[in-house]
């Protein structure tokens, strides 16, 4: 459902992505690993439609459509979700109001009636239980004063609410202690269906102990330099990224 062909992209004139190709089918979990500065978050930004990143070549097809033609909110309505590496605080805007607006905008885009307040609250309760998020978090303002772990859990909660077809999780594991990591990973696993897919971007193999990927790709200097099954993650953990770097130099 997602096809990336020879994608090149730059930020402020500096080329970050240098020809990425990737294909994601329904039900697949892809892990993208790589050292800092290799372009992992940039790839996530391109998929979500962040203006900061300029695509200079290549294409991204979403269910046959040109994804790059769509605005960020249209992509969201299409079922693409980005779990932010640094979730943003929006003071004074309650989670309830924020999620209600998000869900109803998405329903509007699909020609559906807005959810009634009671149905909405019911949905919220269900999803809260599903992802085991503390009740208190959803009665506060969006991410305001949340700890790092709470922010990440909140991302997973929003993902549960929006039921995306493709979830791109950008370093969702960074800054999490092991318990929070488990909550986040459980959430992701519970939301998994044969139809939806995820791209899990991570620096460490740790997360992949909990979320088992079908494919692991190594991104290095703006290119996918290695793709393999889940065992690649273990190998990376053991040998470090230097191993890949060396392999590349020799090639």
């Amino acid at each position: 459902m997602l096809v990336i062909n020879n994608l090149h992209a730059e930020i402020n004139g500096k080329e970050i992505l240098k020809g990425i190709s990737l294909k994601v089918n329904p039900g697949e979990v892809h892990a993208i690993m790589g050292p800092n500065g290799s372009g992992k978050s940039t790839l996530a930004s391109v998929l979500a439609g962040r203006e900061l990143v300029m695509v200079t070549a290549g294409e991204v097809l979403w269910e046959g459509k040109n994804l790059l033609d769509l605005s960020p909110e249209e992509r969201s309505h299409e079922g693409i979700f980005l779990g932010f590496q640094y979730p943003v605080e929006i003071p004074g805007v309650s989670m309830v109001n924020f999620m209600k607006t998000a869900i109803n905008e998405s329903r509007k885009a699909k020609g559906m009636e807005p959810l009634s307040p009671s149905d909405f609250l019911k949905l919220m309760r269900e999803k809260k239980n599903l992802v085991e998020i503390e009740s208190g978090l959803t009665s506060r303002s969006v991410n305001e004063g949340f700890s790092g772990g709470e922010k990440k859990k909140n991302e997973i909660f929003q993902m549960a609410m929006l039921e995306p077809k493709l979830a791109v999780l950008d370093e969702t594991d960074s800054g999490l202690d092991i318990d929070a990591l488990r909550v986040v990973a459980n959430g992701v696993n519970k939301l998994k269906t044969p139809q939806n897919s995820s791209i899990v971007i991570t620096h460490y193999q740790r997360l992949l102990d909990f979320i088992i990927p079908d494919f692991v790709h190594v991104l290095y200097k703006g290119k996918i330099v290695k793709s393999s099954g889940k065992e690649l993650a273990l190998e990376l953990e053991e040998k470090g990224y230097d191993w890949i770097k060396k392999e590349l130099e020799q090639a």
């Binding site: 969201s76 932010f84 943003v88 929006i90 924020f98 607006t101 998000a102 905008e105 929003q158 929006l162």
Partner: peptide
């Protein structure tokens, strides 16, 4: 952008943020 990514248009996002403020 955060609001956009959740499917909320820029106009509505400003409305939300300002009302929150």
């Amino acid at each position: 952008f955060y609001c956009n990514q959740r499917g909320i248009s820029t106009e509505d996002a400003i409305g939300l943020i300002v009302n929150g403020y």
